[in-house]
Structures are given as C-alpha cells and as structure tokens.
C-alpha cells in the first residue's frame, strides 16, 4: 500500500516542479501563444491560424518538411544498417573487457561536439582534402571526387553524430539476449540468416525502435550538419524555422513551424511504433 506523501516529500519535489515550470512549461506556453498571434496588414495583432496555414499553403514549406522527414527516415535506417554489425560484434563476439573499452571509443564524437566533428569531416572530404589527396597520391583517381557539400557529406555528418544513440540501446538489447537462443535456433535447423531475421531482430526490436526514435528526432531536428556539410540544396526544415526567427523576424510563424515540427515528427514516430508493433513504455525502458 502506498503511503500518503508527507510534507518533506512536497518540500523535495517543489524545486523540481518549479524548475520544470520555469524552464520548460512557461517558454513553451509562450511559444504556443505566439504561434497563434498574427499581424494583419494594418499592424493589428489578432488570434488566428494563419501561421499554421502558411505551412500548408506555401508548398516550399511542406515540401521541405517532407524532404527533411524522408531524409531523416533514410538516415535512421542507414544508422541501423551501419551500427547493427558493430553492436553485435561488441556484445556477442568480443570479450567483455575489450568491448567496454571499445564502447568508450564510440563516445568520442559526443565528447568533441558536433561543430568540431563537422569541421573535421570538411577537412577530410573537401576537393583537395585528406581523402582525395590520398586517392590521387596512390593513383586510384586523377581528378578529385566531389564529396563535400553534397548529400553524401551531409549523410556522413548526420550518421556520425547520431550513430551512438542507435548503438547503445541496441547493445543493451543484444546484451540481455541469452546466447542459448541463438544456439537453440541453430539446433532446430535454422540458418544464420533465419536466426538473424527470426530471432535476433525480433528480440532486439525494442532496442532498435528506441534507438531509431532518438536518431530520427536528432536528425530531423539537427541544424549544423545539413547547414554546413549539406551544400547549396540542403534546405532542412530547422533552417526554415531559424530563418523565420532571424531573417524575416516573423517569430509567430517561426513558433508555429516549431510546433508543427514537433507535432509532425511525433506522429511519424507514432506511426513507426504502430507499424513495428511496439509500445512506447516498453521501448522507453
């Protein structure tokens, strides 16, 4: 039976609630309020849905959002494809004492910070950068391959900053899987591919989905990598929000777009959860 919370309990929880209120609830309410404010041609401020309608009326906005969302889904899938073998290797193949050290190495990009890693990739990928110079020096190519300021460089950058958030939940899911499940499947006549598809993937699905959600949210909300590595056509939806605030000084529309991003990306996550048959509370744990 739960005991009735006493005075000390309230005393302890009050700072937390105040903190949440001051730093999370109030700013969001302010933004929400702003998003419904619209300045008419006469300079009057009225309540209106115009800021939200602007998103749907002008195809550049929703097209950019669709492009950003599709790209983010692609990067999420790619992150899974790239990191799954690594996660499997670290949890099931390598001895425990080495794997924790290697996992630590994976954290390095996070320690360094996004901006620095992005500049690092610029040095590697530019026309006369490290990779092109190397390839030319060993005689593999004659003219540099254009890698920087393309979708390729943007994808690399986005993958690099988000990979870890995919690999960690996946590793913990794989870690909790008893090796005997794999042996049992093999004993019952399953091939390696069947074991991967029918046993390992279903077992790690909660980890994959929770990693996928984090990666997707991180990528769709990123600003730095698309902006710096993406080149001339990489208009990301976040950049449009940034421009609303900073270039056209239209904070109301910026706020509305921010909430649309939150709403639309959350519904994509919701659909993904439904499709994969997962529940949020299960994935979250």
């Amino acid at each position: 039976m739960m005991k009735k919370p006493r005075g000390t309990f309230y005393l302890l929880i009050t700072p937390v609630l105040l903190w949440l209120l001051a730093l999370l609830v109030i700013p969001h309410l302010d933004m929400l309020y702003r998003s419904f404010r619209f300045e008419t041609d006469d300079g009057l401020w009225v309540f209106s849905l115009n800021n939200y309608l602007a998103f749907f009326e002008d195809q550049i906005y929703w097209l950019t959002f669709v492009k950003t969302a599709l790209y983010s889904i692609g990067v999420t899938i790619l992150a899974f494809v790239v990191t799954f073998p690594v996660a499997f290797f670290l949890t099931k193949v390598v001895a425990k004492k080495y794997s924790s050290f290697m996992t630590l190495l994976l954290l390095i990009p996070i320690w360094i910070g996004e901006l620095v890693t992005v500049y690092g990739w610029m040095i590697l990928l530019r026309d006369n950068g490290v990779i092109n110079s190397f390839l030319i020096n060993i005689g593999l190519i004659e003219t540099p391959i254009v890698m920087l300021f393309t979708s390729f460089s943007m994808t690399v950058g986005l993958l690099y900053i988000s990979m870890l958030f995919m690999i960690v939940p996946m590793m913990s899911a794989l870690d909790s899987m008893d090796d005997s499940l794999i042996e049992a499947a093999s004993d019952l006549g399953a091939s390696k591919w069947t074991i991967f598809r029918q046993i390992i993937i279903p077992y790690t699905t909660p980890g994959i989905v929770s990693g996928g959600i984090i990666v997707f949210m991180l990528v769709i909300g990123d600003y730095v990598a698309p902006n710096i590595l993406g080149g001339k056509s990489s208009l990301w939806f976040t950049e449009q929000i940034y421009n609303k605030f900073l270039a056209s000084f239209n904070w109301s529309e910026g706020a509305a777009f921010g909430f649309l991003l939150l709403l639309l990306s959350s519904s994509i996550v919701w659909v993904a959860l439904k499709l994969s048959g997962q529940k949020l509370d299960k994935v979250g744990s």
Binding site: S180, L181, E183, A184, D187, L188, P202, T205
Partner: peptide, 12 residues
C-alpha cells in the same frame, strides 16, 4: 535436438 538448461524458448 537439445533442451537447454534455461529452456531458451523464443520469448517473442
């Protein structure tokens, strides 16, 4: 075929 110590039933 083998029956494992922890049974190794497929939980999913």
């Amino acid at each position: 075929n083998i029956v494992f110590q922890n049974l190794a039933l497929f939980p999913m």
